[in-house]
Design a protein around this nucleic acid. Structure first.
Lengths: 107, 107
DNA sequence: CGAACCTTGACACGCTTCTGCTAAGGTTCG
DNA sequence: CGAACCTTAGCAGAAGCGTGTCAAGGTTCG
């Protein structure tokens, strides 16, 4: 038996059925469907649900954060832009000398 | 002249002074301070501000998204967890055959 | 000194996120 | 058939985000 309904999956993972539908709309965990439209959760989805719950609990990650992480993966241009912005921010440490200089000028 | 006040930086970048203070609290762009507490924005910060604005406009990225991206960089454990969750999600394509199998069993 | 800045703190507003619940109706299965 | 599920759609409410604005007070500089 490797397909469960939304209620069964909820029970197994600790999410509510409501949230399982919400996660689907957020495109985070999208179950397959039976011919008549019932959601079908397999082992893969069960694992995804459990580990997503773990990520939230242990790291305080929000659902929007995960959506963004997924988006970074799908859109290389975005990823490059974000990476280079972050890289700019990290130069800070290297330019310590210049910053000291700035401080002296200003203070 | 390489240090500007919050008002000057705002004028040069299109952000409002209010938002510059907000970005500081969000730990996205943190200016230095004069001895008396005035914020000092240098060329680095000006560039960060301009490119952050560009990221929002062109990609619809939110500030929380950028904070999260920065966090991913600082916390390797978090990054590993997120990456492996995303990797799990992407196996989907590879296991197409098995999914077809599941569908037949269920429908 | 006084104008024009800056500081922090707070209130406020509209919008989105996350979550539950209810309603009206379809599906499954004993 | 009827109970127990499922579907979508919607309202609702707490919390957070992105912004503006205002108040009370400190700093700078001509």
């Amino acid at each position: 038996m490797d397909g469960m309904t939304v209620g069964e999956a909820a029970e197994q993972t600790g999410w509510s059925p409501r949230m399982l539908r919400y996660l689907e709309r957020a495109e985070l965990i999208v179950p397959t469907r039976t011919a008549s439209g019932y959601r079908v959760y397999g082992l893969r989805e069960l694992n995804q649900l459990r580990s997503l719950a773990a990520l939230r609990r242990r790291f305080g990650v929000e659902l929007g954060d995960m959506s963004f992480a997924a988006r970074l993966r799908r859109e290389p241009a975005l990823r490059a832009a974000v990476d280079s912005w972050l890289a700019g921010i990290e130069l800070e440490a290297l330019e310590w000398d210049q910053r000291k200089h700035e401080r002296l000028l200003v203070a």
